[in-house]
């Protein structure tokens, strides 16, 4: 798989489906460029709705369309979609149970030096807190395409968050079988389980490779399905290792780490460390700079693992 932004894969997959299914409708809020949805708007003008810069309107219109038989895909920057139109997501989408798929693009810290207004480090928590809302953070282009194909088959609400940049492929075509709502176990290891979502999966994989050279066995779980969380996979992993480390491009509260910690504490108590962005405005910089600064890259994750396995600083 070539390096492609996950948002591009969403558009491509929907365009393929939209040719056959006239009920697929995409909506944008002056976001077709940033969402990579310009090709959809161009090829399917009859299946496209532009709302202008109006994210609340976007989500409510999507819900109305869905209630009348459309499969609505509302595409807007994750920061605005998950915050500005939060109540529309809660009431018109989740509560009324409309078939709206909320596509949060340029999520996390993708917008870098544009500041906290443009960061979505709260969206997993916010969206997960809504009953009847599912939350997905696919890790790479291939998985993103498979996820969208699966979502096309159901009629329930979902929030999908993807980044802005071309995503590092973590799966190879032909070697990956996608199972809906099941974490993908990418590596085995008996010392630590790294549970990650979104673009942090590639970082967790990199950390596991570093640790392997030091004789530390790290499992890597791609938990793209943050809600419903694949609890079985979490329990299995926790039962096999000495510690669990979660990694996400999100603040410290209510995200993947919180959810994994709840499951581990309840079922198979083991030390859990949550690697996250801080509870503070994120430092200005590119995604790579920001990840490195907060230890959300391969080296930083490996260092966190060493610490948790050897908390006293001595050799384990």
């Amino acid at each position: 798989m070539e390096k492609t932004a996950n948002k591009q894969m969403i558009c491509r997959t929907l365009m393929e489906a939209a040719r056959e299914d006239r009920n697929i409708v995409a909506l944008c809020s002056d976001s077709r460029g940033s969402g990579s949805f310009a090709p959809f708007a161009k090829d399917f003008p009859e299946q496209f709705v532009e709302t202008g810069i109006a994210e609340q309107n976007l989500v409510s219109i999507a819900a109305g369309l869905a209630r009348c038989g459309k499969k609505a895909y509302a595409v807007s920057p994750a920061c605005f979609l998950s915050a500005r139109s939060y109540e529309q997501c809660k009431v018109d989408v989740a509560y009324s149970n409309t078939n709206v798929k909320l596509i949060g693009i340029s999520g996390g810290v993708s917008y870098g030096a544009l500041g906290m207004s443009h960061h979505s480090a709260q969206d997993i928590a916010a969206m997960s807190a809504i009953p009847n809302m599912r939350v997905y953070l696919p890790s790479d282009p291939l998985q993103t395409a498979e996820l969208v194909k699966a979502l096309l088959k159901d009629e329930k609400p979902a929030y999908i968050r993807v980044g802005r940049n071309a995503a590092e492929p973590v799966y190879q075509e032909g070697e990956y079988s996608f199972v809906m709502d099941k974490a993908s176990v990418m590596r085995d290891g008996r010392d630590v389980a790294l549970i990650a979502c979104g673009e942090m999966v590639a970082a967790a994989k990199a950390a596991a490779e570093i640790l392997e050279k030091e004789g530390i066995g790290a499992q890597v779980l791609d938990m793209y399905c943050v809600k419903p969380l694949d609890e079985e996979a979490v329990i299995r992993a926790a039962s096999q290792v000495r510690a669990v480390v979660t990694v996400e491009e999100h603040g410290p509260f209510g995200g993947l780490g919180s959810m994994v910690s709840q499951v581990v504490a309840r079922t198979w108590p083991k030390p859990v460390v949550n690697l996250t962005l801080p509870d503070a405005p994120v430092i200005a910089g590119t995604s790579a700079e920001v990840f490195a600064y907060y230890g959300l890259d391969g080296a930083g994750i490996a260092e966190a693992v060493r610490k948790i396995l050897r908390p006293d600083g001595k050799e384990a």
Binding site: I53, C79, F80, A83, R84, G112, A113, L114, G115, M116, S117, H118, I283, A284, G285, T286, E289, Y293
Partner: peptide, 25 residues
């Protein structure tokens, strides 16, 4: 727009002269 800089792409009221942060329209 540099790493760690307060001079970001939207108003940042940690800087003098700026009353309110914005960026979300």
């Amino acid at each position: 727009s540099q790493f760690g800089s307060p001079y970001i792409g939207h108003p940042n009221n940690k800087l003098p002269g700026i009353e309110m942060n914005s960026g979300s329209l």
